[in-house]
């Protein structure tokens, strides 16, 4: 063949349609923003009407959103929304929940221990691993500063 890898890479870039960035961003903005508004409403309900501390109210709002996402995922609606919303469904905490719930549902055919439980964090695991390790690194800095007064 007369085409080498370098030339082909250019041909592929030319032939492949680009993502519709503007449209995608509008969707992400509206859907992502809406999840945050819902979180805000929930936080205020928990704090003002049910008298939780602000910190607890925020935790409870997150937990409620996680539950909502699980419900939407189980009903098969979350991925329908995500097909348009992209990062609007990925970045909020609901996206994290969807990443945990969807493999659990998917691999239930492989059993509750070897399927559901072992595959549950196959997508969301990295977030917990690197998030926690980042907090450990921050903790070391805080500890050293407190201990040695730097």
């Amino acid at each position: 063949m007369r085409t080498n890898k370098k030339q082909y890479d250019r041909m592929v870039k030319g032939a492949s349609p680009k993502s519709k960035v503007a449209k995608n961003c509008v969707w992400a903005f509206v859907v992502g923003g809406s999840f945050c508004v819902l979180g805000q409403i929930l936080t205020e309900v928990y704090a003002e009407y049910m008298h939780f501390s602000l910190g607890d109210a925020r935790q409870l709002a997150s937990i409620t959103l996680v539950g909502l996402s699980a419900l939407l995922t189980a009903a098969g609606w979350y991925n329908r929304l995500a097909r348009r919303a992209g990062a609007g469904t990925l970045v909020p905490i609901t996206g994290f929940a969807n990443a945990v719930v969807s493999p659990a549902i998917e691999f239930s055919t492989e059993g509750f221990v070897t399927g559901v439980a072992s595959r549950m964090f196959v997508i969301a695991g990295p977030v917990i691993v690197y998030g926690t390790l980042a907090s450990v690194a921050y903790g070391v800095i805080l500890y050293v500063r407190a201990r040695f007064g730097i």
Binding site: K18, L81, A82, R84, N98, V101, S102, E106, F107, I123
Partner: peptide, 17 residues
């Protein structure tokens, strides 16, 4: 889909290609 990509109920956007 479940073998090569992601669980069916996982929310992801398909790329144009």
């Amino acid at each position: 889909e479940r073998q090569f990509r992601t669980p069916l109920d996982y929310g992801g956007k398909r790329t144009p290609t």
